[in-house]
Design a protein around this nucleic acid. Structure first.
Lengths: 208, 208
DNA sequence: ATCCTAACTGAACTGAACTTGGCTCAAATC
DNA sequence: GATTTGAGCCAAGTTCAGTTCAGTTAGGAT
């Protein structure tokens, strides 16, 4: 697959990198990226704002890192969920369920990711930001291919009617991730119910 | 319906308000809101950047106005498309087609709208911004109700199987608008093809 | 001709992100 | 015990886009 790697800085035992990422996910996810002051993230971790620059080149670099990590997670989850499931319809169902099998923290990461997809189009000025951007961009394509391939497989096996797999894949993916725009863990609808409805909807879109 | 109105400032003959809105839609839609400099919009219109403040209180005020106008348009289009269509499935098809019957400019407005939905949650400091925000927020609910009502009608008439209309409506709407994240008029897929596929998908989700 | 006011302008201001440089501290290594 | 190194603090500055201010212009009405 020739994925470009962004070598994860090996964590010293005193490193606050993951703590910063967690705090940033909370802030960016709840308040919004633009609306949260970089210094607020530092506060929440319990360090001065200049200390953040030991770990991230900029606020945007941190955001791009969060996005890349979430994309990696999504891809891994998909792969795990569909591995060894022979029946395409079953694989589809399993993939959708996996997409909604997430923690509250991961819900926020999803929201952040899809609210800032546009960042991935334009080139970045600094090296490390650009590296994260390119890696994320690539992972987006990987995830898209995950879904498209699943559909192609189903169509060629005769389990799904023949349609434009590219377009259908984009639509299914769009349907699934559209939930992260409005879903709140504190809201009235439990994620399990959403998951069931979307799962059925995807099957009806693809397999009928 | 008791919609709150934002009285449209009556256009003096020399007013550049609509020209500014058009330029802003182009810039915000193609470059992104944060990434476009307010002064670039002024340049494109052919005025100094401070002149913008005669028409809009702030860059954000302009954005909120664009969003509200687009929501109004969407609602009107839906109403027009479904008025007098008795058969729920036909009304659904008509509504979906109407959603994709848009100009290139309106595609950009859609993209802008859905990329900045989060703006509508938190209160604004200034009067006029807040007025636009509240109006837009309300219109979001109106549009959501448009779709939900259509589903409820279909279910009560027995045309659609009984399901959670709220949730199903949100999903259908999510599927439809998810297209604006990736669709480009210059891209390989014509909007008509997308429209057809989504139309069928919506019918399969709702009516089967 | 004069007035009025919408339309407009150049220069100055503001605030937040980001930058820099010099310094402290503590744990791990030699 | 001395040295190295990752981690962090403080204070002072730069930049840049958005914004405010104190006026000026120009077209239509009286």
């Amino acid at each position: 697959m020739a994925a470009s790697f962004v070598e994860e800085p090996e964590a010293g035992p005193r490193s606050k990198r993951v703590a910063i990422l967690a705090a940033a996910v909370d802030c960016f996810g709840e308040t919004g990226f633009e609306a949260t002051k970089w210094s607020t993230v530092a506060e929440r971790v319990g360090i001065g704002q200049t200390a953040l620059y030991h770990y991230f080149e900029s606020k945007t670099h941190c955001l791009l890192t969060i996005m890349r990590l979430e994309l990696q997670r999504s891809h891994d989850k998909f792969t795990e969920a569909t591995a060894g499931v022979a029946e395409p319809a079953d694989a589809l169902r399993s993939a959708v369920r996996a997409a909604y099998d997430v923690s509250d923290q991961e819900v926020l990461q999803m929201r952040i990711l899809h609210n800032h997809m546009d960042l991935l189009s334009g080139a970045r000025k600094s090296k490390r930001e650009e590296a994260e951007r390119v890696a994320a961009r690539q992972l987006v394509q990987v995830v898209e291919r995950d879904w498209t391939n699943l559909l192609v497989r189903g169509m060629s096996q005769g389990a799904f009617p023949l349609r434009d797999a590219q377009l259908l894949g984009a639509s299914v993916l769009g349907l699934i991730v559209s939930v992260w725009r409005w879903y709140r863990p504190s809201g009235p609808t439990p994620l399990s119910e959403i998951s069931d409805l979307i799962e059925d909807a995807c099957v009806r879109i693809v397999a009928m």
